[in-house]
């Protein structure tokens, strides 16, 4: 029956569950490390994290980020410190979502949500300005009319963590080295690639919000 067994294969599928995801109607949970559109974060006191250093623009392989810094107004500072991001634009017709800007950012100002379904009908809409990228007063990403959001798409945006820590030191895995976010505080970090409970894993769940280990060692 070898020649005809294919008929059985196709007939059997009829009684199996469908694998189709009904995409625009029902959104399945995003993969934990999905790279989506960016947000510009704020500290819990509402100050913007971006200091206008242009490192993200410099590292961007697609050259899609345009940043101009300016001095903080002394009486109404936008960001803590001397400078802030006066202009911040990302062209999503060019962005490849490589996340190098996130790695380059010294203040964790730019992070990526998991929003992937955004489609524009005008080129101007593809260039996100600072007003659109900056989180709102509750610390949530702004939802633009052409974006398809669900609540879990910006749930772990701020506390994104690498598999190992910054600098490649595996002992920092799973520890929060990031500053707190407006509306979220210190978010629990994403777990790394190392399996829990293996030798050398000294980080427990309870320590997730512990202060960062002495970074001045290096």
């Amino acid at each position: 029956m070898g020649r005809f067994s294919g008929f059985g294969v196709t007939l059997r599928q009829v009684f199996r569950p469908r694998v189709t995801e009904r995409f625009p109607g029902e959104l399945s949970p995003p993969p934990p490390r999905l790279h989506g559109r960016h947000v510009l974060g704020r500290y819990p006191d509402g100050m913007e994290k971006c200091i206008g250093c242009e490192l993200c623009a410099g590292v961007c392989p697609a050259r899609c980020i345009h940043v101009r810094g300016a001095d903080n107004p002394p009486d109404a500072p936008v960001a803590p410190g001397e400078r802030y991001g006066f202009v911040y634009e990302i062209n999503y017709l060019r962005c490849i979502h490589c996340d190098l800007c996130v790695e380059a950012c010294p203040t964790e100002a730019i992070t990526e949500t998991k929003l992937f379904a955004f489609s524009f009908t005008r080129r101007a809409d593809a260039i996100y300005t600072k007003e659109e990228l900056l989180v709102d007063d509750d610390g949530r990403a702004r939802r633009l009319p052409w974006e398809l959001w669900s609540d879990d798409l910006d749930a772990h945006t701020g506390a994104w963590m690498r598999a190992t820590s910054p600098g490649g030191d595996a002992s920092y895995e799973g520890r929060v080295l990031w500053s707190a976010d407006l509306g979220f505080g210190h978010r629990p970090p994403e777990q790394g690639q190392r399996r829990r409970g293996t030798a050398g894993d000294d980080v427990g769940d309870g320590e997730a919000e512990a202060p960062a280990p002495a970074a001045e060692e290096r």
């Binding site: 196709t10 199996r16 694998v19």
Partner: peptide, 9 residues
């Protein structure tokens, strides 16, 4: 029917 036989809708 083909969709059924390929686990699709």
């Amino acid at each position: 029917v083909i969709a059924d036989m390929q686990n699709r809708i």
